[in-house]
């Protein structure tokens, strides 16, 4: 019954063009338009602008002159820049693992060992995330305050007496800020792990239990490895979050004392808006941007691009 095709060639491609009119015609590109427009105007254009600007220097009479990489060398030669780098490294190295550890542990016990109180715990530990960061900052300033802050009061019970506020001391300021950040964002790690744990396939956990894994053993050899996607997302989000750090520092120390707690946010803010040095501000912006892209790329190359909550795999399809 089958006969060979002869007219096959002549009508090729015609179907696709005609049928496209109604369901998937060119007009459907309008679906992409709003997001792309936002991106071009408010993300891409500023980036290009700032990149160009970083090669210019503005004089007193508002004429810009091309200076090439000069501002870059100036920024790299600025000791404050290196304090910022050190602070950012400290920030990332401390906050990310600590948040994962506390958040993960809390999530594990909430999900596996509570029932009636589960919703309550989930909500309460997340509250700092939804508390306005500017409020948090002022509350912690009060906590850290000497004489009347409860932080100092509690430390006294352990025999630690500080003469001044930890955020007023250059050697402790950054750690004091990191503590606030950990306090605020651990709830986020917790909730991500909660989602991950709640969605673990029960068959695998049952199989592990049949194999005799229980308690810590189960957590260590089954649950933690299976939560890797969440951990990867948290790492990526943590690094981006570290580079975003601004409000806590700006409100609690302003980057001081004497630049001891300076981060990229405050550094850019001070240079661009307080000192009004657009060229240098632009250069720092570009450096932060490049750093962020490199860190993200390194991570995506080594760990894959798990980004969405609970490790949706985007690159897998």
């Amino acid at each position: 019954m089958p006969t060979l095709a002869s007219q096959g060639e002549t009508i090729r491609l015609q179907p696709a063009t005609r049928r496209s009119r109604r369901f998937a015609g060119p007009w459907t590109y309008l679906f992409l338009a709003p997001a792309v427009l936002l991106f071009v105007v408010f993300i891409a254009y500023p980036i290009v602008w700032v990149a160009c600007q970083s090669f210019f220097s503005e004089d007193r009479d508002h004429t810009a002159s091309f200076v090439g990489l000069e501002t870059y060398w100036a920024v790299l030669g600025d000791p404050v820049f290196w304090i910022v780098v050190r602070n950012m490294v400290l920030w990332g190295l401390i906050t990310i693992p600590v948040q994962m550890l506390i958040g993960g542990t809390v999530a594990y016990f909430i999900e596996r060992h509570t029932n009636a109180w589960r919703g309550f715990f989930r909500t309460m530990f997340f509250l700092p995330v939804v508390t306005s960061v500017s409020v948090i900052s002022l509350v912690w300033v009060q906590i850290y305050a000497p004489y009347y802050g409860i932080g100092q009061e509690y430390l006294r019970h352990f025999g630690i007496i500080m003469a001044s506020s930890p955020i007023g001391d250059p050697s402790t300021a950054i750690y004091a800020l990191i503590l606030v950040n950990i306090w605020q964002w651990t709830g986020f790690s917790m909730l991500m792990y909660v989602a991950g744990i709640a969605n673990l396939p029960t068959e695998v956990l049952d199989a592990a239990r049949v194999d005799g894994a229980r308690g810590l053993r189960l957590a260590w050899s089954i649950i933690i490895p299976m939560l890797m996607p969440v951990t990867k997302s948290l790492l990526l989000l943590g690094i981006i979050g570290t580079l975003q750090t601004f409000p806590v520092v700006q409100l609690m120390t302003g980057g001081g004392p004497n630049h001891a707690s300076e981060v990229f946010g405050t550094y850019v803010f001070r240079t661009s808006f307080v000192l009004g040095d657009t060229g240098k501000g632009a250069t720092i912006s570009v450096i932060v941007l490049v750093l962020a892209l490199i860190l993200s790329l390194v991570q995506i190359v080594y760990l894959g691009a798990d980004l969405a909550p609970s490790g949706h795999k985007e690159e897998s399809r």
Partner: peptide, 10 residues
């Protein structure tokens, strides 16, 4: 059904 266009033919 018309969900997929043929590469050739009618």
């Amino acid at each position: 059904a018309g969900l997929e266009p043929p590469s050739s033919g009618k």
